[in-house]
Write a protein that binds this DNA or RNA. Structure first.
Lengths: 326, 326
DNA sequence: TTGAAAGCGCTAACAG
DNA sequence: CTGTTAGCGCTTTCAA
């Protein structure tokens, strides 16, 4: 291996430059112990001058808190939320990379999560955990060793902070838009019922249609096009007079659109359709939808684990995007 | 921090179980030194019995070859290939996670890559590099310290192995399909000309149309919808009689479709359009296209860096998917 | 062929 | 408040 230009500046160099021991330098830099303000100032100055960056690998080795953050995807079928997962992982990678860390992905079986969760807790290479599509059961089974370095994208708990999109507002905005444009029999196809973070949009939909004096018409769904197709079929069978559908996500909206087309309904003439996510295909197919700032959410989630925050609940805004379908 | 169930089995345990020293156990497991066949067998057996997995963090610390693989995206504008990048990163993460490793992403400026590349070579936290959208210039500037642990998705070099989709076959298949279905004035909108891996499809297109005795009609493009829209406009201005367009990717096909629609051309009646990638939106919009096995490619790429392969050139097959547009 | 010993860069006990 | 002393788990000289 040829000699590389600058053989990397270590804590030793910083300590020497500041005229202190390695231990003191470490304390000054990490804030993990008593240091005089003056010493801290000097050490920090030396570190900055030398362009010092702590080696996360060494840090991980000694502290037992690994050099990577892992996204744990709770799900039955792994690639349900392929697009969603990919965006979360990529955004997370972008945050972690400059910190010298990496990101990983691991599937967690919804029914018996304990095995995987315990293995994760025991794995010394893991620094933090991002739970995706989690349930209260999974949250309850979270090993204590993971508390304090786990964040949930979705629903949280007393010990696990959560970040998510403001799905309630997204549902409300779509209903209000539909009401404004004259729709009166607005139905909803929900997300998977086992996923707690999908309950808020449903509640918001209920509240919004009732506030407008309109009937509540809900059918259970999921996140796939097939769920949307089936959901729309159920809706048409049960309430043939519906004039609008609010879908749990764009994919479901696409499925609903195909059912509507096949049944001879015109969109938006007979039935308006509104999705959620604003995936690239939504623009191409002129689907009215609401945005899902996945990158912002993933960024915040990773920052939260890195900072070791224990209680927080953040919701990111979702904007209405009006196109041809509603 | 509470005591976790099984405090992880280390090399020490394996060595003791096999009745040898840590050093010998290490040699037996890594193959990094002389060991008797018998000892090796015993150590390996002990390791398997105990479920030993070497801690990549510790290994990274001592060897200086970090605990993560980084995807270096060469590009002018970062999110050009957002969908593509996201799939590569996610697939890579899935391969690396079980190995105890993580994945990262870093942008590399196409014009002056040296700075970033040198920093990467110096970074002890990096185990391997996956180059995305790379050029021969970047390949030439690759620091020696990175050789042997770098792979390119796209074009390779004498020292950098490459994996990619068989873009030539993808172009040929589309042209042949168009010829079979009676098209006679088949044009192509290319990818970005600075990207060498886009040259093969163009050459394949040329060869295929010429083999059919048809005229070559090429305009430069890129990978965005805007490039497709502009490319189609140029095509229509220069050769108003074209009856088919082969696009560098689906996104470009979508852009071309919008231009065709605006110009009053009917698809596929007047002009057929075929894309490349088979993104989810392609199915929704009934776009004829060819597949791009990104996950397979990324998986192979990561495996290649992990194995330290130095010369290899693998092309993954691309299948024609016939839909309504061609 | 093997073992003992050194050390990767860092943090965390424990004295001072 | 600070320095000294131990390691984290592994690979890799160097002797034996």
């Amino acid at each position: 291996m040829p000699a590389d230009a600058h053989p990397a500046v270590t804590l030793e160099h910083v300590a020497r430059a500041a005229g202190v021991s390695r231990a003191t330098a470490s304390r000054a830099l990490t804030g993990g112990g008593p240091v005089s303000t003056e010493t801290q100032r000097q050490v920090r100055a030396a570190a900055r001058a030398l362009g010092y960056v702590a080696d996360p690998v060494a840090r991980a080795l000694v502290s037992g808190r690994g050099a990577r953050v892992v996204v744990a995807v709770v799900s039955d079928c792994t690639d349900v939320s392929c697009w969603y997962l990919a965006r979360v992982v990529t955004a997370g990678a972008q945050v972690l990379t400059p910190e010298g860390l990496g990101i990983g992905v691991v599937p967690v079986p919804r029914q018996r999560p304990a095995g995987v969760l315990d293995a994760l807790a025991r794995d010394r290479t893991i620094g933090g955990l991002v739970l995706l599509n989690t349930t209260r059961e999974v949250l309850a089974e979270l090993p204590r060793g993971l508390v304090g370095r786990t964040v949930s994208i979705g629903v949280g708990s007393a010990t696990v902070p959560a970040v998510d999109v403001d799905g309630a507002a997204a549902a409300r905005r779509r209903v209000e838009h539909l009401v404004r444009s004259g729709r009166r029999r607005i139905a909803m196809i929900t997300g998977p019922s086992w996923l707690p973070c999908t309950h808020r949009p449903v509640a918001a939909y209920r509240a919004a249609v009732q506030a407008a004096g309109l009937p509540v018409r809900v059918v259970p769904g999921g996140f796939c096009a097939a769920d949307g197709a089936a959901g729309a079929a159920t809706l048409l069978a049960r309430w043939p007079d519906i004039d609008a559908i609010v879908a749990s996500c764009d994919e479901v909206a696409f499925g609903a659109l195909s059912t509507l087309r096949r049944s001879g309904r015109r969109v938006p003439g007979d039935v308006a359709v509104a999705g959620f996510d604003d995936v690239p295909a939504a623009e191409l197919t002129d689907l009215t939808t609401t945005t899902h700032p996945v990158a912002d959410i993933a960024t915040a989630a990773v920052r939260t684990v890195l900072d070791g925050v224990r209680d927080e609940q953040r919701f990111f805004p979702s904007e209405l995007v009006v196109r041809a379908s509603a």
